[in-house]
């Protein structure tokens, strides 16, 4: 039906309807339309099945635990008792830490690359930094285990000396920890923040900069008071995209978080994240309730990232409209 609207302009007079339809089929327009339409519909179908599978296969767990699944912290496969709170906590804490490290570094670097560095150096550095985004996450995990964790063990006394009085940095430190996971995630999301934010900042019309400079603003004042606020929505969008990515990140986190389903205030303590527990326990899971609970974890993760991604798109799209 929609095919007729797209080809209507070059179909001949309505006097010969039968012939024109015949010709259209011969020329393949309907065929091309149907085939590509089917592919597009397939995408919807696959996504629909994905949601349905997550939903229906977590049925047992949802029926047994209800909303308590999200708010209890017992994870005991032997007793068939499952509460996701420790994993949700670990996911949120590591992502928050990643953002605390990643936002200042990423946005700072984006400002430098967009506003201050000569274009050629900026392009070259951006090229390099964007390559970082292509590095597979299992490789970040590898480096996390064998490079970052030993380094963190070295600098741990220093961190403890400065911040040890806060509840965030207490208790024994074995290297693998919420802290290590947050740092690895930060390294992974920084390229995203940089490359999107840089583009957004570059898109700020130069007359905004000039207006500020012409009033006597310094370079930094024009950047911070005028350019960055102008690009604010896009920068926020890049941060939300980075957040969505870090929430769903699996391998690198699994390898350094310590895999301990407990809720501890200290970042030095090992923890566990949603993605990590699914990755570690899925193949070993015996019993339908166990599998069902793990799939419900997948559903939670899915919902979480969908919401965050949706927010990100909203922000980036609004910028484009302005």
């Amino acid at each position: 039906m929609a095919a007729s609207t797209t080809v209507a302009s070059n179909t001949p007079r309505p006097a010969l309807p039968a012939r024109s339809v015949w010709r259209r089929i011969l020329s393949g327009d309907s065929l091309a339309y149907s085939v590509t339409f089917a592919a597009a519909a397939m995408i919807l179908l696959v996504t629909g099945i994905l949601v349905w599978e997550l939903y229906s296969n977590s049925q047992a767990s949802r029926a047994k635990f209800g909303w308590n699944f999200l708010f209890t912290s017992t994870w005991d496969p032997v007793a068939d008792q499952f509460g996701a709170l420790p994993f949700i906590y670990g996911t949120v804490v590591t992502s928050a830490l990643a953002l605390c490290i990643g936002i200042p570094l990423g946005v700072g670097a984006a400002i430098f690359l967009a506003e201050l560095a000569p274009p050629r150096i900026s392009d070259a550095l951006t090229f390099l930094i964007e390559l970082l985004a292509a590095v597979p996450s299992v490789i970040y995990g590898l480096l996390g285990i064998f490079v970052l964790v030993p380094i963190l063990r070295q600098v741990e006394p220093a961190i403890r000396a400065v911040l040890g009085w806060t509840p965030l940095f207490q208790g024994p430190f074995y290297g693998v920890s919420l802290f290590a996971a947050g740092v690895v995630l930060a390294v992974m999301i920084i390229p995203f923040i940089i490359s999107i934010s840089r583009e957004v900042i570059l898109a700020v019309p130069s007359d905004q900069r000039e207006a500020a400079l012409a009033l006597g603003a310094t370079r930094w004042e024009s950047t911070w008071d005028v350019v960055v606020p102008y690009a604010r929505n896009g920068i926020m969008g890049s941060i939300f995209l980075a957040l969505a990515r870090s929430l769903g990140e699996t391998m690198a986190v699994t390898m350094v978080i310590g895999n301990d389903p407990k809720i501890k205030a200290s970042l030095f303590a090992p923890g566990y994240s949603i993605a990590a527990v699914v990755a570690n326990e899925f193949t070993e899971a015996t019993g339908d309730m166990y599998i069902s609970a793990l799939i419900e974890l997948g559903l939670v993760l899915f919902a979480l990232t969908i919401v965050i991604n949706g927010l990100a798109r909203l922000l980036v799209a609004r910028r484009n409209m302005a």
Partner: peptide, 13 residues
């Protein structure tokens, strides 16, 4: 939306 789905969730699927 599909692009934003974490890879581990695709694995579950």
């Amino acid at each position: 939306l599909l692009n934003g789905v974490p890879s581990i969730v695709i694995g579950i699927f």
